[in-house]
Write a protein that binds this DNA or RNA. Sequence first.
DNA 1: CAGCGCCCCTGCCCGC
DNA 2: TGCGGGCAGGGGCGCT
Length: 271
Amino acid sequence: MPELPEVETTCRGIAPHIIGATIEKLVVRNGSLRWPVDKNLAKYLKNKNILSVSRRAKYILLGFENGQLAIHLGMSGNLRIVSPEETVKKHDHIDVVMGKGGVLRFHDPRRFGAFVWVEGELSSHKLFKDLGPEPLEDAFDLDYLFACSRKKKVSVKSFIMNAHVVVGVGNIYANEALFMSGIHPERFAGSISRKRYLRLIENIKKVLSMAVERGGTTLKDFTNAEGKPGYFSQQLLVYGRKGEPCVECGCTLQELRISQRSTIFCKKCQK
DNA sequence: CAGCGCCCCTGCCCGC
DNA sequence: TGCGGGCAGGGGCGCT
């Protein structure tokens, strides 16, 4: 479900409800997520205060005095604040029950999500130590990306979706940013000019920040922390528009697969 | 070691 | 209406 804007929206949505709260208990109904949920997690969290809520890549991080809880929403996960009386539905796998009476509820049909306990420095944890820069931060700039791309034989689409290069660029926004930049998704990363990488960086930042401003409404089944759906009003230019006319030139948008992922592009506008 | 493909899992949509 | 196949927004991991 979530691209980076949805994760960021979730983060901002839950933060005011959970910062400063004390964990009363953790209820794990189904711990078979991407990795089995640590049997001791409830013990680590019990009676601990939530000191901070932040995000790194698509992981939501809850900070505690004794460590951090990294939550990933996978493809189909969401987090909501609910009251303790709220009926438990199918795929409501985990409840973080807070002292004030609120519950942070994790729902994830496909169970590609994750609850990972991290002790010590985040940057020394295996899931985080090799991650590239955040796309909306200044470290993601032309000098960095261009240097990184040299001698790379992968397609530019795989390149920008590689978390070692830059985090948080998912399939939808990779398609969108490449279209906006006039770059064919199958071009080799190493054969693209500085000038075109500058456009690509600008467009990645633009499309992601616009989506964040809009509250992460990219996805048809996205619900925010209050459980309200997004508007799905964001005008995607290419993603999900196979066979429809290109908004620029009117010719029919094509589909190809890059690393098993749907790739929509305009063969006339993207070279 | 770069790069590709596999897989985890459920839901949904399409064609027969 | 039922069923099988394919596909879906992610991403770590094992292999070549």
